[in-house]
Design a protein around this nucleic acid. Structure first.
Length: 421
RNA sequence: GUGAGUGUAGCCCAGUGGUCUAAGGCGCCAGGUUGUGGCCCUGGAGAACGAGGGUUCAAAUCCCUCCACUCACCCCA
């Protein structure tokens, strides 16, 4: 038997209320903050990601779904959301629009990883990007948006981690200090970190190995080496967050896994941070647009995992509204009655009344059981007598009361009854 | 990529070498007298016990290999 590929899953009807709920909250938030939706292709030229995300990152090194298309071009299933949006910004000349350009997306993300709780090979992210402005107020707004998003879902207890990792002006100085600190310690580092020391020293800071953590705690801090501009930016951001009443903890070891980040980086963690302790995260990427061939264009964004959000909604037993379904069920007996039922169902639907019709000529008992299983509010019963009288039996499934009503006035009768709920 | 656990009907699961051509619950289907639901009762369909190999007189039950799933590590959303 065929199964969904490892790390992917079907989102079954019973899961849809959660999905529609989370997506609706995302849409609401974006509308509130003036972000417009963009949908980009599920795959892009591989180079877009290798160039932006960074050759030394886990994503590029081992997690991309890359393939050659029939024309021999290397393509990759989107492993993150920011680069495609930046590509679209450039491709469509959005620098000619009012800046910053504010965009959001809800889209599948693909990463080849070993699946586990809260981690999939295809997951979905809600993310937003504000491109073309370097005001720290925009950083605050994006963080505020992410924060409000989780609050609007009904989640509680999440926390915000914040850091600044500098820009291309101050980063080299910092990295030099970091290397100077770590070089004598190289022998004590875990094997992974020895590689990081050469390839991506910033990542030394978030190693999980206890011995490495101790060293990382004592390592030079990015915030102590920021250039005046970056420092001012960070200070203003923190002030704005206080203004917005958003509690945050500066975490000097927060660096994030993508190479394009500059200055602000942040992460939002759920109350009960299990193995997958990230609800969402993001940061500034002031050099990325330029790196992709555009003019220097500052930008900031964040991404959040829909599955992670739903996981936490369930963990916290947050109720989500049910999806609307048809309220009327039509049962029928005999061929004539079925023909009448078919016409009646169609007529009611044209009036905007959701209808489910019994099929297959089951016994009336069985049809009533179906109506019950559908949680129909009203049931219409058609038999020989009703067909002859151009009427239907209208049964209220809650009170079990029923009466005969002429077919002609049924639509308005039902509309009235359903509206009175 | 590494480590651990699990694998019996659509779902949850009993079963620890013979009485298992596999039990129960949920769900599904039908019926409980004439055209009516939710509770209850009865009946029915549905599993070659993940796959392959081996040990044994005998295996769902023991061994091996593979596969899948789950969880954890790395890393992330």
């Amino acid at each position: 038997m065929y199964r969904a590929p490892r790390g992917t899953n079907d989102i079954l009807p019973q899961e849809q209320p959660h999905w529609r709920y989370v997506e609706a909250r995302a849409d609401d938030i974006c509308q509130l903050y003036g972000y417009e939706r963009i949908d980009s292709p599920a795959f892009e030229e591989t180079a877009l990601f290798t160039r932006s995300v960074g050759a030394g990152t886990d994503i590029v090194e081992k997690e991309m779904y890359t393939f050659a298309d029939k024309g021999g071009k290397m393509m990759t299933l989107r492993p993150e959301g920011t680069a495609p949006v930046c590509r679209a910004y450039l491709e469509h000349g959005m620098h000619n629009l009012n800046q910053p350009v504010k965009l959001y997306y809800i889209a599948p993300i693909f990463r080849y990883e070993r699946p586990q709780a809260g981690r999939l090979r295809q997951h979905h992210q809600f993310g937003c990007e504000a491109i073309g402005d370097n005001d720290p107020a925009l950083d605050a707004e994006v963080i505020d948006m992410a924060w409000r998003f989780f609050l609007s879902l009904g989640l509680r207890g999440q926390s915000l981690l914040l850091n600044s990792i500098g820009c291309r002006k101050c980063r080299p100085d910092y990295l030099a200090a970091l290397k100077e600190y770590y070089d004598p310690l190289a022998a004590k580092l875990c094997p992974d970190c020895r590689v990081r020391l050469e390839r991506n020293p910033l990542r030394l800071l978030d190693c999980k190995t206890p011995s490495c953590q101790e060293m990382a705690d004592a390592a030079p801090r990015t915030v102590d080496r920021l250039c005046p501009e970056c420092n001012g930016h960070f200070e203003r951001l923190k002030k704005y967050l206080q203004l917005l009443d958003i509690p945050f903890q500066v975490n000097n070891r927060l660096v994030r896994g993508l190479d394009y980040y500059t200055r602000t980086v942040f992460e939002i963690q759920p109350e009960d941070a299990g193995a997958q302790g990230t609800l969402g995260g993001g940061g500034r990427y002031d050099d990325l647009i330029e790196e992709l061939g555009g003019r220097p264009t500052p930008a900031i964004g964040f991404g959040s995992g829909i599955e992670r959000a739903i996981l936490n909604l369930k963990k916290q037993s947050v109720p989500v509204p049910p999806l609307p379904r048809p309220q009327v069920f039509i049962a029928h007996m005999g061929e004539e009655a079925e023909e009448t039922a078919i016409r009646l169902a169609s007529g009611l639907r044209r009036e905007g009344i959701g209808v489910v019709m019994a099929t297959d000529q089951r016994s009336l008992k069985s049809q009533m059981r179906q109506a019950n299983a559908f949680s129909a509010r009203y049931c219409l019963v058609l038999g020989k007598d009703e067909v002859a009288a151009a009427a239907a039996v209208l049964k209220d499934m809650q009170t079990a009361e029923q009466r005969t009503a002429p077919l002609a006035g049924l639509a308005s009768l039902l509309k009235q009854a359903l509206a009175g709920e």
